[in-house]
Design a protein around this nucleic acid. Sequence first.
DNA 1: TTGCGCGTAAACAGCTTGTAAACAGGGTGG
DNA 2: CCACCCTGTTTACAAGCTGTTTACGCGCAA
Lengths: 279, 279
Amino acid sequence: MLEAGVTSAEGPISLKAPGKRRVGIVDRDSGFVQTLRKRLHMLAWDHHVLSGAVTPEALVPLHLNALVVDVTVVGTDYWSYLEQLCTRLPTLGLVVCTAPSSVRQRVRALRLGVDAWVTKPCHPEELVCVVEAVLRRQRQAELLPADGPATVGEITIRADLHQAYVGERSVDLTVREFELLLLLSKADRVLERGEIYERVWGFAMAHGDRSVDVFVRKLRQKLHFASPSWTYIHTHFGVGYRFAPEPDHGHSVKPRQHVSNDSDHQVEQLATVPALALR
Amino acid sequence: MLEAGVTSAEGPISLKAPGKRRVGIVDRDSGFVQTLRKRLHMLAWDHHVLSGAVTPEALVPLHLNALVVDVTVVGTDYWSYLEQLCTRLPTLGLVVCTAPSSVRQRVRALRLGVDAWVTKPCHPEELVCVVEAVLRRQRQAELLPADGPATVGEITIRADLHQAYVGERSVDLTVREFELLLLLSKADRVLERGEIYERVWGFAMAHGDRSVDVFVRKLRQKLHFASPSWTYIHTHFGVGYRFAPEPDHGHSVKPRQHVSNDSDHQVEQLATVPALALR
DNA sequence: TTGCGCGTAAACAGCTTGTAAACAGGGTGG
DNA sequence: CCACCCTGTTTACAAGCTGTTTACGCGCAA
C-alpha cells in the first residue's frame, strides 16, 4: 500500500524522461478540463483525465506526480476519499479545485494532507501554477537522474557522466568538447558556426573567431582516435558542420563527400604518413 | 531546509528536532501577527517576526523553514525581493499573504518560486494550514533518504545513525561530511558544485565559494583513511564530482578511464598522517 | 590562378582544482 | 562564567588542465 506511493514518486522517474511530470485530473467540467489539457500539453507534461473518484490503488499504475480533484465529482463524502489518497499516496501532490467552500472545509483538507485548495471559478493558468509549485517542492526532494546513454555510430554519449565512450573506453573529452559533441549529435542538420558558438559558448561569436574550428578539430581527433573506422563530423564548405556517423567502406570511391581529413591519431605519425595516402 | 536545531546550520537532510519548524513573518498587521504567533506557539513552532523586507543573506542565520510575507510591507517593487528569495534560498518555503491581487500577480509569483499565495482577509488558521502543507511537502524531502543501511564499496552508510562505517569501525564523519557523502552516493551521476551546495547547505552557492571542494577533500581523506584501497569520489574537471566506488587495481597501470582524479601522492601523505589530524 | 575558407599546430594565459592552514562561532565541560 | 574543543568557513598558494589566440599552409570554389 504505502510502497505504492513511493513507486509513483520515484519509480517512473528513473524509467521515464527526468523532467517529465504526470498529472491526473478528476473533474467533469469539460471546458475547464480542455483548457487545462492544452496548457499541460504546452508544458510538455503528461496528463490523464480520470472519470470520477479513482481508488488510490488504481492510481498507482498511472505513476502520477500530482492529482487535481474537484470534490463535487467524488460525491457527498469526499473526506474519506481525500484521506485515503493522503494516507496511501503521501508523495502524490494533491490539489483540490472546486466550488466555493468554507474555511473549515479548507482547513480540514489541508490538515488531511491536501497540498493546496483552489476555489472555482479560477483561471486555469493559476491552477497550473499552483500544481507547478507543489511539484517544484516535491521535486526538490528527488535527485533526478540524467537521461540515458545515446549511441551514435560506435560512440556512446553519456550525459550523466558528461563523457563519451567507445565500449568501455572513455574518449576523454573536455567539457567544451563534450558540449560540442552533444549539440552536434542532437542536431540532425548542418549547423553554422555562429549557431554552434552561441549554443555552446552562450554568447554571440566575434567576427573572425576560430574557436569552433579548433574545437571541431580537437573533437574529430579524439573521435578518430577512439573510433578510427568511422567518420562523424562533416564539413560543409562555406556553411558549417554536420554530425552524422558513417562507417568507412574501405577506401571506395566517394570523393564527393566533404569528408574532412583524418589525421592519424598522434603527432609523430602525422609526420611520417603522407596526407594523400589516407584518402 | 534550515534547521532550528542546536547546531549552527543544518542541511535539508538534518535529523535533529525533526518536528521543530521555524517560520518567519513579514507583516505589519499586529493583530494578525499576534494571532499567528499564538497559533504557532500552540504548534510548538519557533517563529520570528521580521520588521520589513529582510535580505536573503540576513535571513540565512535565522535558519527558517518557511517565510510568510505581506508584500505590501516590502514596497512597490516586491518582485525583485521575491525573486531574490527564491533564487538565493530555493529551499525556503515561501507563502505570500496579502491584500487582494490579480491572477496575473499570483501567477507571476508562483512562477518565480513562491509556494502559495493567500489573499487577505483570511482566517489565520487557514494560513497556518497552508504553511503547514508547504512544510509537510518540504519535510518529505528530508525524511525520504532515511532508509536502511546501504553498502558501497567497503563503506556502509547508515542513514539512521548519520554515520558511515567500514566493518564496525566508524569513519567518524561530521554532519556536513555525512550529508555530502549521502547525497553523492545517492546520485548516480556527476553532480555540479552548485547542485551539491544547494542540496547540502540549503541555499544557493555564492560565486567563488570553495566549501564544496574543501568538504570533498575532507571526505576523501577520511574515506581513504578508512578504506585505503578504494577510490570513491571522482573529479570531473570543469563539471563537478561523481561518487562511484572503485577498487584500486594494483597500482601498476593507471586505468585512465573516465576517472579524472588520481590520488597516488595523496595516499602516501595520508598514510603518514596520524588519525587525529583527520579531524 | 586567386582569394578565401578551413585544417593544423603550438604557445600562452586564465581558470579549475588540490591542499593546507588560519579564523570564527557555538557547544561542552570544568 | 570561563576556557577548551569541535565544526564549519574563509583564505592563500601551487600545480595542472583547458580554452583562446595566433600563425601557417593547404584546398575548395569562382
